[in-house]
């Protein structure tokens, strides 16, 4: 088999794995958009915030230590204990639920019936706030996140591909874990949405707010729930990305990576988010591999957007989005 083709196959596989991670972030967007019509730009920052909180709890950091030190001239940093990963994840989840409640209570309850663009702006404001808040609460330095996920090259794939192609593929164990987790997460979400009472209520709200309200579904409860679920998805994404590249500010930029995925897959479709993520992941890696060297590299920044843009011109609602019907 020609060498280039083998390389391309490795790139393809890595692209698939990257695509799964994009899809993870995109999932959070889709959930909130479907249930409340809010295009939640803060999803990426929520991932960052949850990862920061997780690290903070695990390391036993004192929240707002920097602020307290600056005001009172004290020198406190850590409580001095370490919380096991699983317990810390539970605590973080509680924080995310609390955040969902506060966000709903303070912001989105007051913005009911506003135009979608106003809601979108509000989430950008929320993103800015959370970014500053997370940094003040836990400090802005780059942190290592280790919840015990396997990392490093997968030797089994390396060896078996070496036997076949004379060239070992480099696949990170973490990416494989992420793929499995994403698959589990999507299955769980689908089961939740299809077969549980709350899930059905959520879909009813997504379909028609007023009709759902009139059959006795509490909008507030559903919205808090949806934001909590989105917070949970953000936490999972935060753990994966945080383990991969450290918990730092750039984590919030994965929201920007998820946007073209959403466009491609359609804002309203969970399968769309997955398929879109895979297409974008594979597309940008292969493009960088094949065309990147000719034009100076770093094409990953814009390729996804341009691909989605070209795609949308032919299919404005995305791959799986609901058909846009306009009435006067």
């Amino acid at each position: 088999m020609p060498e280039q083709l083998v390389f391309a196959m490795e790139v393809f596989l890595n692209g698939l794995m990257a695509g799964v991670l994009y899809a993870l972030v995109a999932l959070g967007f889709v959930l909130i958009y479907k249930a409340s019509g809010i295009f939640n730009y803060a999803q990426g920052v929520m991932a960052l915030f949850s990862a920061l909180t997780l690290v903070g709890i695990m390391e036993g950091q004192v929240p707002f230590a920097h602020l307290i030190n600056a005001i009172f001239g004290t020198e406190i940093h850590h409580f001095g204990w370490h919380v096991p990963a699983l317990l810390a994840i539970l605590f973080t989840m509680a924080v995310m639920v609390g955040l969902a409640w506060v966000v709903n209570k303070l912001i989105f309850r007051h913005l009911v019936n506003q135009e979608p663009i106003i809601l979108f702006m509000a989430t950008i404001g929320l993103a800015y706030f959370l970014e500053g808040f997370g940094d003040i609460m836990w400090g802005a330095d780059i942190k290592k996140l280790d919840v015990g996920l396997p990392q490093g090259i997968n030797t089994w794939i390396d060896e078996s591909t070496f036997n076949i192609f004379d060239y070992g593929f480099f696949i990170d164990n973490l990416d494989i874990v992420a793929t499995v987790v994403a698959a589990l997460l999507v299955t769980a979400l689908v089961i939740f949405a299809q077969y549980t009472k709350q899930g059905r209520a959520m879909r009813a709200v997504a379909d028609d707010h007023q009709a759902a309200l009139s059959v006795g579904i509490s909008l507030n409860f559903i919205w808090v729930m949806v934001w909590s679920v989105a917070g949970f998805v953000a936490l999972v994404a935060g753990i994966m990305w945080g383990t991969k590249s450290g918990v730092q500010f750039s984590l919030s930029l994965i929201a920007l990576k998820a946007l073209p995925v959403l466009m491609l897959g359609g804002f309203t479709s969970i399968p769309g988010a997955i398929v879109g993520g895979l297409i974008i992941g594979v597309g940008e890696k292969l493009f960088e591999f094949a065309i990147g060297p000719l034009v100076g590299g770093a094409t990953e920044n814009w390729f996804a957007y341009v691909l989605a843009l070209i795609f949308l011109v032919f299919r404005p609602q995305g791959l799986f989005g609901e058909k846009i019907i306009e009435r006067v």
């Binding site: 946007l259 959403l262 466009m263 770093a298 814009w302 957007y305």
Partner: peptide, 27 residues
């Protein structure tokens, strides 16, 4: 593309301009 794409889809599509142009001027 604004003739075909509307609302949020357009907002995200304009991000393509943002990233592509900055990359272009860099490279």
């Amino acid at each position: 593309p604004s003739l075909r794409i509307k609302g949020f889809y357009l907002a995200v599509a304009t991000l393509a301009a943002q990233f592509f142009l900055v990359w272009l001027f860099n490279k």
